[in-house]
């Protein structure tokens, strides 16, 4: 029989152990910083991967932690994109101030739409998220006088970053900026998921009935995590608009939501890094396929999706998560 002091020590260690910073995480971020110094030819690509990874982090919060299957997450990304683009074009050209405004506005959009997502079964949620996505895409198309319609929003020229650095055509400042913002949001998301609040969100996914039976208001938890994730998706969109200085209707397209789901699934859900890992893999695969058959690469995306499900998601796509867990030393 173990003593109480021993039990408390063991419990403390176990609870802390889950949220401990792993060596693999440090390596990951060091590699991202190293890329800044050693891969100057790849800034544009790295910038895109990092933004997609941040976008996927947002979906991970909703799906991997909250358990909500969303097929319209591009709504928030695209909304953030347009808000950032319009802000920059019509007065608020400071990138960081733009990010803050975008985060608030997209968060509000998430809050508004979260009430629809709380209701009903998985299919209802899929439909509603899908419809909200299509609806926003339609709005973007109809408001051509504001969004530029099919031609895209041109003339997005942000001010100097922190009053010092200009966004250059090689994407050097862009990548550094995206990396820094993504890192900060990762730190916040990481604290969030290991907090009691974060645990209660996971609890909802595990068993909503039990969660409410221990006195945790399930719907309120989902509303908060959904809005928070929306804000992060919006920031990812804003980063894209600011660093590429252009917004096209494509940011709201359905395939973006579907691709995002694939990215997160490839990288693995529920450990935050899945999105970044998946974004990198996705980009590599996309480039490889585009070299073969540029026009029909969606066919191969489809084939990958079907194959993943046929082989079993947990068997192949959890691989990075599995490796990370091995590195962590806790199963």
């Amino acid at each position: 029989m173990s003593s109480r002091a021993e039990n408390i020590a063991a419990a403390t260690k176990a609870l802390h152990g889950v949220s401990r910073i792993r060596p693999a995480e440090i390596v990951f971020w060091l590699a991202a910083v190293a890329a800044f110094f050693f891969l100057p030819d790849q800034y544009l690509l790295l910038n895109e991967v990092m933004i997609t990874g941040l976008f996927a982090l947002s979906l991970d919060l909703v799906l991997g932690y909250g358990g909500i299957v969303s097929l319209g997450h591009a709504a928030f990304f695209g909304f953030g994109c347009y808000v950032a683009g319009l802000l920059t074009k019509y007065g608020v050209a400071d990138p960081l101030l733009g990010l803050v405004i975008v985060a608030v506005m997209t968060g509000l959009l998430g809050l508004l739409t979260s009430f629809l997502v709380l209701r009903g079964s998985d299919l209802t949620r899929i439909m509603v998220t899908l419809s909200v996505g299509v609806l926003l895409s339609e709005i973007g198309n109809r408001l051509a006088w504001l969004t530029g319609g099919a031609d895209g929003l041109q003339g997005v020229a942000p001010d100097l970053l922190l009053g010092r650095w200009e966004f250059d055509i090689f994407g050097k400042v862009a990548y550094a900026y995206t990396l820094a913002v993504t890192f900060v949001l990762f730190v916040i998301a990481r604290r969030f998921v290991f907090s009691p609040f974060g645990w209660s969100v996971r609890a909802v996914k595990e068993n909503a009935l039990r969660t409410s039976a221990i006195g945790i208001p399930v719907n309120r938890r989902l509303i908060v995590v959904y809005s928070l994730a929306a804000a992060i998706a919006g920031i990812a969109g804003a980063l894209l608009a600011q660093t590429t200085q252009f917004v096209s209707l494509d940011v709201l397209a359905f395939h973006r939501s579907a691709d995002l789901l694939l990215i997160l699934i490839i990288g693995g859900t529920g450990y935050l890094y899945g999105g970044l890992v998946g974004a990198l893999l996705f980009k590599l695969v996309q480039d490889a396929i585009a070299n073969l058959t540029p026009e029909y690469w969606e066919f191969w995306i489809g084939l990958i999706l079907v194959s993943i499900v046929m082989i079993g998601r947990e068997r192949i796509v959890g691989l990075p998560a599995f490796l990370l867990k091995r590195l962590r030393g806790v199963a």
Binding site: I265, E298, R313
Partner: peptide, 8 residues
């Protein structure tokens, strides 16, 4: 995932 894959 599966059925979207088929659609694509």
């Amino acid at each position: 995932l599966f059925s979207i894959g088929l659609v694509f």
